[in-house]
Simulated scan of single mutants.
Amino acid sequence: MRELTYFVAMSLDGYIAGPNGEFDAFAVEGEHAAPIWERYRGTAPTQLAEAAGLTIDGCPFDTVLMGWNTYAVGLPALPNPYAHLKQIVFTREQSSPEGSEAVQFTNADPREVIRDLKAQPGKGIWLCGGGQLAARLRTDIDRLALKIQPVMFGAGVRLFGDTGYAPESWKLESMQSFASGVCLAEYSRA
């Protein structure tokens, strides 16, 4: 069965974006970038990867899931951000923008969609963002891959939105730290 991996950058205080969706405080360059890309190649928008000379071959995922706010970060310039992957955007209100024909927009229950995806053959499934979407899929996530950044936001979009108190155990699979202060922590469900 395919696995759902929540691979995302987060601040030391557990935010994946600021109050208005800001994420520019996260370090995207530095000595951590190449090893993380090697492990999770193909997790940059297609056009950006090509412009930077990064290969997307060998991506551990063939499908990417995101909420509307995560998707909208690239608009209007990138209406088809991950052209090399099957893209599913969960939204209740927004319509598909021009140029996004390859992107699937849905208001279906994310848990039903992920269960259907997991039953199909293929590579891994990447949840790339949306704290509220992650909260809805919390019990369906098999792996966490957290790029922990040496910054604190104080407010914003939490890793798992506003789920309330609900303890879950996870098993640390690997932890890689870099001189930049960034750490890649990988967990599987305990």
Rank of each mutant, 00 (worst) to 15 (best):
G30N: 02
R2Y: 04
G42K: 00
T43A: 01
M10E: 13
N20W: 00
E31Y: 00
Q120S: 10
D109N: 10
A145T: 09
P60D: 14
A145K: 01
L137Q: 03
P81K: 14
I36A: 01
H32Q: 06
T139S: 12
A25T: 07
W37A: 01
E112R: 05
A134D: 04
V73I: 15
G74V: 10
F26H: 04
G156D: 04
C128N: 12
P76V: 06
A33P: 04
A134W: 03
M10Y: 00
P35M: 09
P79E: 02
A83D: 13
A185V: 12
L4S: 05
S188C: 07
A134K: 00
G154I: 07
M152E: 07
F153Y: 11
C59V: 03
D62C: 01
E168Q: 15
S169Y: 12
A155I: 08
S100M: 08
F90R: 10
A145S: 13
G18Q: 02
M175S: 14
D162M: 05
L4M: 09
V73P: 03
A190T: 13
Q104V: 14
V8F: 01
Y82M: 12
F7M: 09
K147P: 02
T106N: 10
R2S: 02
Q87R: 11
T70M: 08
Q94M: 06
I88Y: 03
L184W: 11
A155V: 08
G67M: 04
V89C: 10
E186V: 13
L48I: 14
N107T: 11
E98R: 12
L133K: 00
A185D: 05
S11R: 04
P76E: 02
D140G: 13
L172W: 09
P45E: 15
A135N: 11
